[in-house]
């Protein structure tokens, strides 16, 4: 269950496409579930979800829930953005390593002065006017050192 719902202003600057296959992911996100695929032959989970397994190229995959928890491997703050993102600058993006052993790139909805490597983060749903996207917020009750 995605607990963090973050209101955003306006429409998504660069909305993702939905396919017959990825509809499960985007509908899951709308329903506060953070999903991906796992190979039923070799067991490998992957993100983004894919209709084939990048480890063994099997086409037998199943949808699985992710905990939506991880930590920051690295981050940056973007001051000079593509014009379609200009209204959101400055904004933070980062690389998140999840508890399932996946690595993904995402928006970090965290104040720049708090950002640090290894910070525990939790998935959030970014609620734009035209639909959702995903990002990460600082995990509540984080007791890690600054």
């Amino acid at each position: 269950m995605i607990e963090h719902l973050v209101p955003m202003t306006g429409d998504r600057p660069y909305p993702p496409r939905t396919t017959d296959f990825t509809r499960t992911f985007w509908e899951g996100l709308a329903d506060q579930r953070f999903l991906t695929t796992a190979c039923t032959d070799c067991g490998k989970k992957t993100f983004p979800p894919k209709p084939i397994c990048p480890a063994c190229l099997s086409a037998k995959v199943e949808w699985v829930k992710l905990a939506g928890e991880g930590h920051i491997y690295s981050f940056t703050i973007i001051h000079a953005a593509p014009s379609i993102f200009a209204k959101e600058t400055p904004y933070a993006v980062g690389i998140v390593d999840t508890v399932e052993g996946l690595r993904l790139g995402a928006r970090l909805l965290i104040s720049p002065d708090r950002l640090r490597i290894s910070m525990p983060v939790s998935v959030a749903r970014m609620d734009y006017d035209d639909g959702p996207y995903f990002g990460f917020v600082e995990t509540k009750g984080d007791g890690a050192d600054d």
């Binding site: 660069y14 496409r17 990825t22 983004p48 690295s74 981050f75 940056t76 993006v93 790139g105 995402a106």
Partner: peptide, 24 residues
């Protein structure tokens, strides 16, 4: 320089990846 559905919508720019190299 990103997955246009699962990364680019977050606002990554080409050199933002290098910036993350620098931070790391």
């Amino acid at each position: 320089t990103g997955d246009v559905d699962f990364q680019s919508p977050a606002g990554f720019t080409p050199i933002s990846w290098y910036a993350m190299d620098a931070v790391r």
